[in-house]
């Protein structure tokens, strides 16, 4: 199962639902200033309850065609959006997993690209014109990839260890993994290897698990985490 994908589609669903609401609101709402009946959408008051449409609420089906959300009639747009967000978050308690992973296993932030926003943004060039939003997207997505690696690195279950061993037990914060020294001739293997080969060696031996697909999502995420932890280190392939 791929977390990123699930979350992506769930997010799309919620955005769709919000758009629907705005449409409903603009078309039919008779009292735009009224903010009554927020209770019906209060996350505390209806948490865990089966929602049943009453005279005071409306059912709205989100674009995935499966989820139905109920919101009080007569809400303002913002309140409706908040209500939907609350509901979505209740259904997805793991939604903050990146923040949580970062808090638990602190890793370095991606490079600061804010200099790109300074000065004369390329006149007459489309490529190279960046907005703050671009920078936020890059950082968020890169971090998410690394967080996924961190999650796997720290979990014997994710790695498929038969002896309940994870990488962090021997490599806290990915210490002593030296990604900057690859490719290098690994004496014990008798050939030149890439970082992923050595990762898989540790997966099979100290961790005692089936080797990972070298191009699979887990290996890619592990590489991402390990590389990210050596930010600022000089690349020195072949170093022993």
């Amino acid at each position: 199962m791929n977390w990123t994908l699930i979350r992506g589609s769930a997010r799309r669903a919620i955005v769709c639902a919000m758009l629907l609401f705005w449409a409903a609101f603009l078309a039919g709402c008779k009292h735009p200033s009224e903010t009554a009946e927020l209770d019906a959408a209060d996350p505390q008051s209806d948490a865990g309850k089966e929602t049943v449409a009453t005279a005071d609420t409306v059912d709205v089906k989100s674009c995935d065609g499966e989820n139905t959300v109920q919101v009080a009639k007569g809400l303002t747009g913002q309140a409706m959006a908040d209500a939907l967000m609350d509901q979505w978050q209740r259904n997805h308690p793991e939604a903050n997993w990146v923040t949580e992973e970062k808090e638990k296993h602190v890793f370095l932030p991606p490079a600061d690209n804010s200099a790109l926003l300074q000065g004369d943004q390329g006149k007459g060039h489309v490529y190279g014109n960046f907005t703050e939003r671009d920078l936020i997207t890059w950082a968020r997505e890169a971090e998410k990839f690394v967080a996924e690696g961190s999650r796997i690195f720290h979990s014997g279950d994710e790695l498929g260890s038969q002896i309940a061993v994870s990488c962090d037990m021997c490599h806290p914060h990915a210490a002593n993994t030296h990604p900057e020294t690859y490719p290098k001739y690994q004496v014990q293997l008798g050939r030149v290897v890439l970082l992923r080969d050595m990762i898989n060696w540790c997966v099979e031996n100290p961790v005692r698990a089936e080797p990972l697909d070298p191009n699979g999502p887990k290996m890619r995420a592990l590489e991402a985490y390990i590389m990210a932890q050596r930010k600022g280190t000089v690349m020195e392939y072949g170093k022993h």
Binding site: E103, K104, H105, V106, H154, D168, M169, P172
Partner: peptide
């Protein structure tokens, strides 16, 4: 599990 993780900063 939190305490068992050497690099767990919670």
């Amino acid at each position: 599990m939190t305490v068992a993780g050497l690099d767990n900063s919670l």
